[in-house]
Nucleic acid binder design. Structure first.
Length: 259
DNA sequence: CGAACGACCTGTTCGC
DNA sequence: TGCGAACAGGTCGTTC
């Protein structure tokens, strides 16, 4: 569920709550997840986003990695709040409790030594150079939308923002990645930057489930131009928004201004 | 090698 | 109202 803006939101909110607080306890309720005993007695001294993963650096020298996948959520609770349904693990700090909620149980956690060679994926917020994208897409005949969502190439773009970026750039999601012109890569880079930055300011997109660390909905859904707008009018050209299936994922676009 | 597809899970919504 | 099918923000392993 959470894409880059949602994960970035959680990272920033974790900095305001859990950073430098001693971890008193950690409990795991889902046998699919690894034990988190090694969190006890240490503290988080840094937190950052890597693609859609949350990386928390521990005072013990280890790293605590969390990927929320489709339905994972993080919630900051007071000491005496009741445990929400689908709680998969909790981490208790001196000033509150971090709860991971995940109905579909796809989320993954990991405590590991810091990795010295990190992923080669591009972070679309820090460096997103049209020339570099164009080079990476040489010989790639998959749809541009799937290319934008390849986490090994670009870290953090998922289904909602891929649809929105391509609409903003006026490019059809089915176009082969290698077929885009320099001008079109330029538009993609620009659209990606402005859409992700605004979505972060909005604390993400709440279609149904997404909530931030404090249980609040995001507000970017007010800015969506195509995602989940099948049958409605394109805000740029008034044509009807279509929904197609690309590799089994719902794909929303305007057939008129995204040719 | 690259691209497509099923699997992993559970909950919600939609059509009959 | 009830029931099954389709669908959901992600990624991985397998297959073609």
């Amino acid at each position: 569920m959470p894409e880059l803006p949602e994960v970035e939101t959680l990272c920033r909110q974790l900095k305001k709550t859990a950073l430098f607080m001693e971890i008193l306890d950690a409990r795991v309720f889902d046998p699919k997840l690894m034990p988190l005993d090694r969190l006890k007695g240490t503290k988080i001294i840094a937190t950052c986003r890597e693609g859609k993963s949350i990386k928390m650096t521990l005072a013990s020298g280890m790293e605590f990695l969390l990927h929320l996948r489709m339905t994972g959520r993080l919630l900051w609770q007071g000491k005496d709040s009741p445990l929400p349904s689908h709680a998969r693990f909790t981490v208790s700090f001196e000033n509150g409790i971090l709860v991971c909620i995940d109905p579909r149980r796809f989320a993954t956690v990991c405590i590991q030594h810091p990795q010295y060679f990190t992923s080669a994926a591009i972070d679309p917020l820090s460096s997103f150079l049209p020339q570099q994208l164009s080079t990476l897409a040489e010989r790639r005949s998959l749809p541009i939308k799937n290319f934008l969502m390849e986490q090994g190439v670009i870290g953090g773009i998922g289904n909602i923002y891929a649809c929105e970026i391509l609409h903003e750039a006026a490019i059809n999601p089915s176009r082969k990645a290698k077929s885009l012109s320099a001008t079109e890569w330029e538009k993609i880079a620009q659209a990606t930057h402005s859409i992700l930055k605004r979505a972060i300011c909005c604390r993400g997109t709440t279609i149904s489930d997404w909530r931030d660390l404090f249980g609040q909905k995001g507000t970017y859904q007010a800015y969506l131009k195509v995602y989940a707008r099948e049958g409605q009018k394109c805000l740029r050209c008034n044509a009807v928004i279509h929904r197609a299936s690309l590799s089994g994922r719902g794909t929303y676009y305007c057939p008129s201004c995204q040719r």
